[in-house]
């Protein structure tokens, strides 16, 4: 119990709980099946990308191209569905393949040349986005076929996108906790040099991390398209910051070495609930961005202050 309280995720979870309770009291519809379903479904793409971002942040890296990678995949998939080759199987395969390629390019450039990931991904961010805009001339790809939107059906009251997200979270958590790959990631983020001496292949680990995130972005593109039923290549601009914020709010250390998928899920829910809550709580339009920023600042501040306190306690114990 005490251990649970000490975890970084706990404070964010408590803030989230307080927010939810407050919103429910203010507007009971907040806690309705439809609203919960809506919050979950509209944040699946964000959540899937945030799972990948958690891996990257743990290695002390960063990827600001995730939104572009997602739209890159979403656009190609929408184009594919306009051709006779489009069917559910090819869509999934293509989503994985496209994500693999975009992620592998990031991973290759970062690991091969040992350049700070923010630089490489800043560059690929504009390249991926530029390619799809040049290709489509900004045209929206409307009316995706039925088999495409079927990916986001609701079965037995459970929306499928949420199922995909949960599956991806489980796989990611397993990868992080129970595989050599996952342990290498933590080791690398904790102390790069030490990890290297311990025999971790840094280049390989980095390459895999970014490629895995790329694949998740590819799948996020598929989910996003199927939810919306059409594709807007210029859309979801600036989502990369939401993805990073979600992971960090969930307790992942942006300087590397710490982070869990569970925490990230809480972070994603936090972002989703704030967005939803701002409207549900009837916050005046012009104040929404301000309140949004404020909540993030406060959440992170509480988190950091708690950690500081815990750290100083630990130090005192060590001295004793």
């Amino acid at each position: 119990m005490k251990k649970l309280l000490e975890r970084r995720e706990t404070s964010v979870f408590l803030i989230l709980a307080v927010l939810c309770i407050g919103l429910t009291i203010y507007s009971p519809t907040f806690f309705s099946y439809t609203n919960i379903k809506n919050v979950l479904v509209s944040n699946t793409a964000l959540g899937i990308m945030a799972a990948g971002m958690t891996f990257i942040l743990i290695t002390a890296g960063i990827d600001v191209s995730v939104a572009s990678q997602m739209m890159f995949s979403a656009t190609w998939l929408a184009l594919l569905s306009e051709t006779p080759f489009g069917n559910p199987v090819t869509l999934v395969l293509a989503a994985i393949l496209i994500g693999f390629v975009t992620g592998a390019i990031n991973g290759f450039l970062i690991s091969r040349f040992d350049i700070h990931p923010i630089i490489i991904t800043l560059g690929t961010n504009s390249i991926y986005r530029g390619i799809i805009l040049v290709m489509t001339n900004g045209r929206w790809l409307m009316n995706l076929p039925k088999y495409f939107t079927a990916f986001s059906k609701t079965v037995f009251g459970i929306p499928l996108p949420v199922v995909y997200a949960v599956l991806i979270f489980l796989v990611s958590a397993w990868l992080l906790k129970h595989t050599y790959f996952g342990r290498s990631i933590y080791a690398m983020g904790g102390n790069r040099e030490a990890a290297r001496y311990a025999g971790v292949n840094l280049k390989k680990t980095i390459f895999f991390t970014y490629t895995y995130t790329g694949v998740l972005c590819g799948l996020a593109g598929l989910v996003l398209d199927s939810i919306l039923g059409n594709c807007q290549p210029s859309g979801s601009n600036g989502w990369e910051m939401n993805v990073i914020a979600a992971a960090v709010i969930g307790g992942t250390n942006i300087l590397g070495g710490y982070g869990t998928i569970g925490g990230t899920v809480i972070g994603v829910l936090m972002m989703g609930v704030i967005e939803n809550g701002l409207v549900v709580a009837h916050v005046p339009t012009y104040w929404q961005k301000l309140v949004y920023g404020l909540i993030i600042i406060v959440t992170v501040t509480i988190d950091v202050l708690r950690k500081k306190k815990a750290d100083s306690k630990k130090q005192m114990i060590e001295i004793d």
């Binding site: 507007s27 519809t29 907040f30 309705s32 439809t34 609203n35 809506n38 509209s42 793409a45 929206w140 996003l224 939810i227 919306l228 059409n230 807007q232 210029s234 859309g235 979801s236 601009n237 967005e275 939803n276 409207v279 549900v280 709580a281 009837h282 339009t285």
Partner: peptide, 25 residues
């Protein structure tokens, strides 16, 4: 009852509409 921006983003407009239907039954 509401005046909301969607940042010219379809996915945001989509979730805003859902939120509006929740907020204002």
């Amino acid at each position: 009852v509401a005046y909301e921006p969607c940042d010219d983003d379809q996915s945001k407009a989509y979730s805003i509409t859902q939120n509006l239907m929740t907020a204002y039954p």
